[in-house]
Design a protein around this nucleic acid. Structure first.
Length: 257
DNA sequence: GGCAAGTTTCCTGGTT
DNA sequence: TAACCAGGAAACTTGC
């Protein structure tokens, strides 16, 4: 049995980078480690469900790879309709934790409805950092075409009119933190130093973009290392999962925005 | 079809 | 021991 409407990576990515809620991200400000209790989980988007999962993983220090996120390619309404057994089936030993969390949130949301007299649907309340940006429904977000990111600059040696190179893909994730749910983060923004937080997740995203479901971080990192020679990346010795943009990488500096 | 660029895949060996 | 890093070699994909 699967609680997911689709278990393929496509759906997972739609969840991660999906257009529908690309701007609806109050939750990106999760710095307090709280999701908006005002936002009833019934109204969550797929993206928000995914973020909630990430937060649970973080809070309980559970390895994100220990549950199949694609099993949660569902929106808040569907999530709330899952039974305890459904959670067990979908997330194994993590299921009870998820069930407990969502139950609490449902009660919390119900309480807010009662006292708040259905003030407004949370989805309508989301601020959008990119008000001019909209994505056609059903289209997977491609960070390389986001207006905030400089147009994917041609690679130093040859332009690729079709799309993004790996380093541009990485750069564009970094430049769009609201769509970067803890995958990669800047270590030193001014120096161009960044670190992979979820290396395998990034690899899967890259694999999705290249239509290659067997992509792994091992392979991705090999491609990254080829950039050293071309000075698109520089080595950062002694630090795992840490890379630095080199002199031939374009478009990552704030001054270049 | 040939070529080049940019990966992708596999591998061995070293480091953390 | 696992995960990651480094880099060689060959194969593959794509555009020209």
């Amino acid at each position: 049995m699967s609680v997911t409407t689709s278990t393929n990576l496509d759906s997972q990515l739609t969840t991660t980078w999906g257009p529908t809620n690309s701007c609806s991200f109050v939750m990106s400000g999760y710095t307090s480690r709280l999701w908006p209790h005002e936002s009833q989980p019934q109204f969550w988007s797929k993206y928000q469900v995914w973020e909630w999962l990430q937060q649970i993983m973080d809070m309980h220090q559970i390895d994100a790879s220990s549950i199949p996120f694609q099993n949660f390619d569902i929106d808040g309404h569907q999530l709330c309709s899952l039974s305890y057994q459904d959670f067990i089936r979908a997330a194994g030993s993590v299921g009870p934790i998820l069930f407990h969390s969502i139950t609490e949130l449902k009660w919390s949301g119900q309480y807010h409805v009662e006292i708040g007299q259905l003030e407004s649907k949370p989805e309508l309340d989301y601020s959008c950092p990119f008000p001019d940006v909209s994505y056609p429904s059903g289209e997977i977000y491609d960070p390389s075409i986001h207006p905030l990111a400089p147009a994917a600059s041609p690679s130093p040696s040859s332009p690729d009119p079709r799309g993004t190179h790996l380093w541009e893909f990485i750069r564009d994730i970094l430049l769009n933190p609201d769509r970067n749910p803890g995958l990669i983060k800047w270590e030193d923004r001014t120096e161009g130093i960044f670190r992979f937080l979820k290396s395998e997740a990034v690899a899967q995203l890259w694999g999705k973009k290249k239509n290659n479901s067997s992509m792994t971080y091992e392979k991705l990192s090999r491609a990254m290392r080829y950039y050293y020679k071309r000075e698109i990346l520089e080595r950062v010795d002694g630090r795992r999962l840490v890379y630095k943009f080199g002199r031939n990488a374009r478009g990552w500096k704030e001054s270049e925005k």
